[in-house]
């Protein structure tokens, strides 16, 4: 779906992206990882046709992003890291305006606005001004606003920044749903557990260069670190029981280490998984 070949972007003497080559298959949920300043955002801007590369090429669905940026933008939906919304306008006004700017009109616009309201689960707050929404609601609206035109490829730039666990789960569900409906998703984040939870393919870049890429399984298998499996025991069973059972089955167990539940596990257990939409 997205093919990046020998991409190089320089700002004066600074080389933001250096000879980057990547291939994002159609229908993939692709994690793009890298520390701050690694070149993730510049790469996304190149894919969207907002930055003209110094060298190399970017194609989306076979369309050159430099030669035909408008065509590429019709195929992609970029979920910006910032909350790119009009605070003074209502949820509905935001969706209608942003859908209209994306080229939708008439019944198609109305249908897509309804779809986005359902996706973001913001129908009860449809007439609320965005400035009155909670951070999580704004994030969901930010995501839905980018998908109004039904893009084939969705690029999410750290979409879970500053949201509560419930909204994060909702965003995860949305991304999985998009992928299930056939969209290609590129997901950038600093949170490794998010990539592990969501993505099937991953690329890590640093200093503008590709460090490694492959499926999540390939990356983990090729790391040289022994494989770890997580087993959740029912109440009453102990780690010693597990070790005994594994040995009895003829498996060579190196260690059985009890893993305490994370704070997020406890948080979700106590507060539930449903969305909290109080501003």
């Amino acid at each position: 779906m997205i093919r990046i070949d020998g991409l190089r972007v320089t700002y004066g003497s600074l080389c933001a992206v250096d000879s980057l080559t990547l291939d994002v298959p159609r229908g993939a949920l692709f994690g793009l990882l890298g520390p701050n300043g690694a070149g993730k955002t510049t790469t996304i801007r190149c894919i969207a046709g907002l930055v003209v590369p110094s060298a190399g090429s970017v194609t989306v669905g076979g369309v050159d992003a430099v030669a035909h940026p408008a065509e590429v933008r019709r195929r992609i939906g970029v979920v910006p890291q910032q909350l790119a919304l009009y605070d003074e306008l209502t949820v509905l006004q935001n969706l209608r305006v942003l859908g209209g700017v994306l080229g939708l009109s008439g019944a198609r616009l109305a249908d897509r606005v309804e779809w986005a309201l359902e996706l973001a689960q913001l129908r009860p707050r449809v007439e609320a001004r965005v400035e009155t929404l909670s951070g999580g609601m704004k994030r969901r609206l930010n995501l839905a606003s980018s998908l109004l035109h039904g893009p084939e490829c969705v690029i999410c730039d750290e979409p879970t920044t500053g949201v509560d666990p419930q909204s994060r789960l909702h965003i995860f569900d949305t991304i999985r749903r998009l992928r299930a409906e056939g969209s290609t998703v590129v997901y950038t984040t600093h949170y490794m557990e998010e990539v592990e939870a969501l993505c099937d393919r991953v690329a890590i870049i640093d200093h503008g260069r590709l460090v490694t890429a492959g499926t999540l399984r390939e990356l983990l298998a090729g790391s040289g670190t022994p494989l770890r499996h997580s087993v959740t025991l029912r109440a009453g069973a102990s780690g010693a029981d597990l070790a005994g059972a594994l040995s009895a089955a003829g498996l060579d167990v190196d260690a059985v280490v009890p893993t305490p539940r994370s704070l997020e596990d406890i948080f979700l257990e106590r507060t539930g998984h449903s969305l909290r939409d109080e501003a």
Binding site: R73, P80, Q81, Q82, L83, L98, S146
Partner: peptide, 13 residues
Amino acid sequence: RSGLQTRLRLSAV
């Protein structure tokens, strides 16, 4: 600064 301009530039205008 807020990213709205980028959002608009990614649209049909």
